[in-house]
Computed example of a mutant assay.
Amino acid sequence: MQEAAVANMKTFSRVVVCGVISEYTKAEKRAAPDMLDVVYKRIKIQGFLAADYMSVYQDFLQKRCNYLRGGEIQVLEDISSGMESIPSAFVGLFRGDNIEKKIVQIAEE
């Protein structure tokens, strides 16, 4: 996926990277973009940590809650059902199987 993204990026593109949970436990070689494309297209790849932005967290939280209440953004939920799905749901987090927010529903409300 990363190779396809880099191959289709424009000159002077920028990429931000935060969170690579699927890579934490991989034993095999990790994927890397075609570095020739990164150089020739002058692509900037920069990582960041959420902790870098703790000073603006309260403002973000207030705005995000307002957007959610107003329906301006929607939460995507990846829901698995039942206690028996907990182990595979947990392992799937490390493989990047989930979409957005992972939930295991234990019982109907």
Rank of each mutant, 00 (worst) to 15 (best):
Q2S: 07
E3Q: 15
A4C: 03
V6I: 15
A7V: 03
N8E: 04
N8A: 06
M9I: 00
K10V: 03
V16L: 15
G19V: 00
V20I: 10
V20R: 10
I21Q: 09
I21N: 10
I21C: 06
S22A: 15
E23W: 07
E23D: 13
Y24M: 10
K26R: 15
A27E: 14
A27R: 05
R30M: 09
R30W: 03
A31S: 08
A31F: 04
A31I: 11
P33A: 03
P33I: 00
P33S: 05
P33R: 01
P33Q: 01
D34Q: 00
D34L: 01
D34K: 08
L36S: 13
V38I: 07
V38S: 05
V38G: 00
Y40D: 02
K41G: 00
K44H: 12
I45R: 04
I45Y: 06
G47V: 02
F48M: 02
A51T: 08
Y53F: 07
V56N: 10
V56Q: 13
Q58M: 10
L61S: 10
R64G: 02
R64D: 08
C65G: 05
Y67M: 12
L68E: 02
G70L: 05
G70E: 14
G71R: 01
E72H: 05
E72P: 02
Q74T: 10
Q74P: 02
L76D: 14
E77H: 07
E77Q: 11
S80K: 14
M83E: 14
E84T: 05
E84F: 03
E84L: 08
S85N: 13
S85C: 07
P87L: 09
S88M: 11
S88P: 00
A89S: 15
L93D: 08
G96C: 11
G96R: 11
I99D: 06
E100S: 12
K102S: 07
I103D: 04
V104E: 04
V104H: 09
V104D: 05
Q105A: 04
E108A: 08
